[in-house]
Simulated scan of single mutants.
Amino acid sequence: MEEKIEHIVSWLRNQVDQAGVKGLLVGVSGGIDSAVVANLIKRACPDQSLGVIMPCKSSPEDQTDAKQVIESCGIASVTFDLTRTHDVMYSTFKEELEGKDSYHEEDEQIIDANLRARLRMSTLYATAANFKYLVVGTDNAAEWYTGYFTKFGDGGVDLVPLLNLTKGEVREMATYLNVPESIINKQPSAGLWEGQTDENEMGTSYDMIDRHLKGEKVPEKDRAIIEEMHRRSEHKRNLPPSPDPL
């Protein structure tokens, strides 16, 4: 595990050098993936790394967990409460479309959730520009394969150091890095609405996705869900399409 960690840390340092920037930052949600990344960037750039906490209609427990991550790895941090920004932006959007009888209330939950993810991305990039840092993402192999991330939201980053690690491997790394047990054992959630969990939303478990990615046999129901998520999210993993030149 130490070799895996040092490999990623060395890679992060090389990315900083190649980009000609000063350091790295990550959005810290209070979940296991961002906790692992916070530890990794702290190792890579001990004096030039930053954890960014961005509550936005979030559960108070998530902010408490995020602060615990910051304290446990000793990384510098900053907090931006995006609640008011989100309220102004979403209410403006909603009022304008309602005035034209074009607002689709049945899609409100997902529109609202994705807007929050994209506000956080914008905040991370504004902060990165201020410090001359790169934005480090938290997506793991399971999330990348299934497309379980918001396009140009939490998927809008410069570097993705966990992309080749399954969720189970991220947990193993978290244990090795002494991430608090409460964070490791926390039910995965993007915190996008009350009661939301990753696995309930996906309809399968990270364990099943990990097994599928390793080529192991999983129940047909889970295999079908995973492959359908992969198919529908292909656009998230590719550059925007363009026509062939004449």
Rank of each mutant, 00 (worst) to 15 (best):
Q63A: 12
I75E: 07
P241M: 00
L177G: 01
L177Y: 00
L97F: 15
G191I: 12
V9L: 01
G27F: 04
K217L: 11
E3N: 15
E220M: 11
V157A: 01
V26S: 08
H212R: 05
Y206W: 07
S72E: 10
V218I: 14
K167M: 07
E108Q: 14
L239R: 03
S91K: 14
T79F: 11
A66W: 10
L165S: 05
V170Y: 03
G156E: 04
F152C: 04
D81S: 05
I111Y: 15
T197I: 06
T146Y: 07
F93V: 04
L119V: 11
H86I: 10
Y133E: 05
A44H: 03
T123P: 05
T92I: 09
R116Y: 08
E96V: 12
T85A: 14
T204N: 04
Y145L: 04
P60F: 02
V21I: 07
G20Q: 09
Y206M: 05
E3T: 13
W144K: 09
P243C: 01
K151C: 00
I75C: 09
A35T: 03
Q18N: 10
C73V: 09
K57Q: 13
K42S: 04
Q48A: 04
S77N: 09
S91A: 12
P55R: 06
N39L: 04
Y148I: 00
R116S: 08
T79I: 14
F152Q: 12
E108P: 03
P188F: 13
M121E: 00
K151A: 00
M202K: 06
Y206Q: 08
L50P: 05
E220R: 07
S72C: 10
S58V: 08
D210I: 09
K42E: 07
Y145C: 02
E201N: 09
Q109T: 13
D47G: 07
V28M: 09
D210K: 11
A35N: 03
E3H: 10
R84P: 05
V26K: 01
T123M: 12
K67C: 14
